[in-house]
Design a protein around this nucleic acid. Sequence first.
DNA 1: TAGTGGTCTAGACCACTCC
DNA 2: GAGTGGTCTAGACCACTAG
Lengths: 242, 242
Amino acid sequence: MAHESPTFSPLYRQIKNLIVQALDSGEWLPGQTIPSEQELALRFGVSQGTVRKAVDELAAENILVRRQGKGTFVSTHQDPRAVFRFLRLKAVNGGPVLPKSQPLECLRGKAGQEAARNLGIEPGSQIFIVRRVLKFDGKPVVIDEMYLPGDVFQGLSLEMLKEWQGSLYSLFESRFGVRMVRATEKIRAVSADRAVADVLNVQESTPLLSVERLAYTYGDKPVEWRRGLYSTAEHFYINELS
Amino acid sequence: MAHESPTFSPLYRQIKNLIVQALDSGEWLPGQTIPSEQELALRFGVSQGTVRKAVDELAAENILVRRQGKGTFVSTHQDPRAVFRFLRLKAVNGGPVLPKSQPLECLRGKAGQEAARNLGIEPGSQIFIVRRVLKFDGKPVVIDEMYLPGDVFQGLSLEMLKEWQGSLYSLFESRFGVRMVRATEKIRAVSADRAVADVLNVQESTPLLSVERLAYTYGDKPVEWRRGLYSTAEHFYINELS
DNA sequence: TAGTGGTCTAGACCACTCC
DNA sequence: GAGTGGTCTAGACCACTAG
């Protein structure tokens, strides 16, 4: 007996995809619980064990969070601890300080070749370009420049960015329904030019980390391309290998 | 009924620890298969499902590798693909090239405060200090300096390093029975001094990545502390966030 | 006390590999 | 065909949370 479905995959993976679709459609919002495993098993017509395996994988990917006795929750960037999920920066001395974002610019523009390729949109499409500084303990440490597809972030403005208390990704989540789920970063060492040096309060040509990030929402859809310049005088980028 | 065992943990986690102990003791060597799930279940007196969950976790940590129909294998650094598990460097242009290690020095010394703290040994203990260059496509890209506990790596020499064809970690695995299982890296941007610039064939004060790594073997025991300087003119450090 | 996820078991069948 | 891991199910009991 051959597999008849065009895209064969194990049952639990199909269930996983159905759950992701429900998340993507907004059926369950960040911070809320999803139905219990029993309910999901009924809904999808499979055993609880199969649902469990699907949820296990989504929990391993930080898309869902299980809490014994309470239920399974949709991950949210509202949680302050979630900030360091995507910001791998630690202070050399002292404990973890929540960084504060200071927006500098929010421009409308058209996607160039590189931005279009990274974001999977047509060259010339509307995009937003956001520049901001991240301050730790009042000191500027990171300068970011972000490229965001215009259709997804309609209505974004500098005022909105300035008013928001919290992380950028929690803003994207609350106002635009865009939840960042995964990202890849390419890291290089570069030299600070005059303008960047002034903002980060370092000498010109100080070595900086250049961190280029492509961030994805549900279904591996890229929705943010950014480049950050990190001053590593008092901080370092931390990574776990296994 | 209270838990009587001093360190309570779920059965599958106890099984996991027993498997790690067997690996640590050398009962099963890198590249070999471990007993089948049925055999392990019998040996430990638990169900196959419980063994499976233990093995699942070890496979997720890259300590074991499952191959359907063949069995479960102990991960090995002999596999050329394993090189990029701990070396997150990719060429900007062109495909993946296997780097070639060129050892420069292998010195005996005594652990200073920092090395001792990182390696969990007494200050003043015997250590080895190894320096080497990594070449991609014949071009020097990385210069590494490693600090290795003397008791673990007894007999290490420059000749041995020069003769070895393959990665450093595969040498450690074959000759010293030390298998690197996990590591943390702290990354900063620094400036090339004269000596480093000469080795890496770049201008003096070129920005470089400084990658400080602490690598662990089974049981979270640190056995290597190293610092690498990466030239990122034609390469970048890649990282996945989730 | 009821409901949730967490653990553990037992057994069936499938998919892959090797002989 | 025999043996391995991979999937799926069903059911029991435990641990945690909340009302």
